[in-house]
Amino acid sequence: MELENQEIQTFVNTVRSLSDYDFTEYSDKSLKRRLMKILHDYHLTTESLLIKISENPEFLERIVKDITVNTTELFRDPAIWHSLRYDILPDFEDLSTLNIWHAGCSTGQEVFSMMILLNEMGLLERSDIYATDINSDVLEAARKGVYRYRFNVGYLNNFDAVIKENPRDHNIYHNVPYSKYFVVDKVRDNIRMKDYLLNKPVYEKMDLVTDHNPFDRVFDLVICRNVIIYFNYELQNKVFKLFLDNMNQGSVLVLGVHETILGPYAAYFKKKFQAYYKK
């Protein structure tokens, strides 16, 4: 099945006219792939999709959720979590409050990863954790903190790599049981986060493209991983500006391992330890 650029354009315009969602500056290829998947999954043509979203606001909301990509893992890319633990976070140990924003938090795995790491460093109590996503379904999943076990055995390997092992000193081993943070229930096939981790973060629905910072805070740490890859260059710049305006001096922006700041906002950051420090 092929989709013409004109059809994609019509879809984007229709969504924009019907709602506050704006996919104009999303990455072309990715948007096209997501749309093709939607047409396939719902057995629709472009025309029937446009009619259905025009007539049914709930269906439009569902399609918007389907457009966004929600893949995430506990401690995805252990190397960056090592860097947070040994290079980046120690500089923030003296702050009375550490304000952290997970922008595009999806189903919450990174939020839990961060809280677990902060707790191991003795920083969790002093941290205020905020998390946003465009998709209210994934926020609901984050609030519940229950993940499938069978497809996510890698979570435990990542936990071991980040929390138990120390790549900088192989003589050190922290024997931290999983049960300190979550319950692994193989019979019910799930991994369930502990209540004290569920109650800590403040979740808020937010579209990085159109909304302002919904929290009355300026942040010390902004985590936005594998989100901007779905945006084009112009939109990436807008999002960097949004972050910059809501970050303290010397605060840190953490992007995905293969994401980088290419445009004019690169000048406002200094790259160190796979992270961007606001100058």
Binding site: K29, S30, T72, Y230, G256
Partner: peptide
């Protein structure tokens, strides 16, 4: 192509990555 990412050719000038399933 980086491990754990899809690599797409966005246009003649640009590569895009994706973490889709």
């Amino acid at each position: 192509a980086p491990a754990n990412y899809h690599m797409l050719i966005e246009n003649k000038r640009t590569i895009a990555l994706s973490t889709e399933d």
